[in-house]
Write a protein that binds this DNA or RNA. Sequence first.
DNA 1: CTCTTTCGCTACGAGTCGTAGCGTAACTCT
DNA 2: AGAGTTACGCTACGACTCGTAGCGAAAGAG
Lengths: 225, 225
Amino acid sequence: MVCRMQCSSPGPRKGRARPTGRTGRPRSAEADAAILDATRAALVELGWGKLTMGDVAARAKVAKTTLYRRWASKNELVVDAVAVLFDELELPDRGCLKDDIEGVVLQFAALLARPETKTALMAVVAESTTDDALRNRIRSAVVDRQKRLVVQGRERAQRRGELPKDTGDPEGAASAARSVDMIFDVIAGAVVHRALVSGEPVDAAWAARFTTLLLGGLGSLERED
Amino acid sequence: MVCRMQCSSPGPRKGRARPTGRTGRPRSAEADAAILDATRAALVELGWGKLTMGDVAARAKVAKTTLYRRWASKNELVVDAVAVLFDELELPDRGCLKDDIEGVVLQFAALLARPETKTALMAVVAESTTDDALRNRIRSAVVDRQKRLVVQGRERAQRRGELPKDTGDPEGAASAARSVDMIFDVIAGAVVHRALVSGEPVDAAWAARFTTLLLGGLGSLERED
DNA sequence: CTCTTTCGCTACGAGTCGTAGCGTAACTCT
DNA sequence: AGAGTTACGCTACGACTCGTAGCGAAAGAG
């Protein structure tokens, strides 16, 4: 889902993309990497509004036409450039649910503190409100990467006995899906809002208070179902 | 804080701005209103990325130079155009804290559902990460308008006895301020994230579940302090 | 060696930006 | 009423960005 005309296939050979199946000169994987690096660098220096395709091409030492051969618009380029940053997110096992949540909150906050992330993320979300293709790209490249952590943390807490296990029936499954969505929106939303809108630091003290609130709230939600 | 060179003063006379004190032709208040209306209309049709100053000027039937005499950039214009929408937000007394929160959540969600709001809000926040002046403008024009509702709802709940009253000491005041900030970020963040990032509806059922979570969490937070 | 595709490069029309200059309109003060 | 001051509409402008087209050269596949 990266390039414009070619199909990207897994398993590049010798630093080049596309192992076989097509003839002709293959696309340079180095160029791809250089372009994405240049995009992130430009985001840091210029921000979203002043970033131009020509500038990115110059930084990547690549012709502007090469850029347009792979990405149709600035939006899609930036989504791909930022998406890889979300691969860093992990959920190390800290022993209990509370510590796991605090860890992921701080990790997410550290990611949002990076200038290239903060300036790009909101901008592409804004554009996605009037561009369905972009919305889907963001969902698969960014949102799903994050939501996976919630599912993972939930399962881990269930194994520890900190959360009740899922019932097999459809009713329970629907309830579980609603919970995951809710938790995801609350965590990601609160962290983003504090960091980018309120503009105040997401530090360990805040993370601890927030986690207390979330866990207490989950208990109430559980009791009501 | 609206115009570029002149000081806006309250109490216009006869549809014109600035009652007295300065000489010369006064700025047209009708033009201001027409420009802001045109900006919102253009946001609906074009979105943030394709909105141009020339287009807004044409819609408002105003010269482009008039636009630049009042707003230095597209960012500031859009902030002012969207800010007034947040004046609609109120906190009607529904009798108990739970209903008050659900009400404001749904009201905020309805505001975010409007295309001109959703497409503009995230965009200006994105730009504000690299523009301090814009950040302050957003804070005073949008964020403070929302936070006021949290303070108001909290005081009302305290009068009802649903929340403990503030202690007079500095420690208690700091704790109260932290709570207001936390509640604000959680509510606004979660609603924005669900509506704009997850792209799922903020309906009455979601609002009820979210409110249950929040109130339960507040209880836990309270017990720990 | 031939075929195919990508590459860098240049050039281009279209569109936007933000400003300057001008004559005119609107309002205040004397 | 007249003078002074400021905002307005209009036109024009250079600078910039966009996205594309056309070219010859480079890089791999068969």
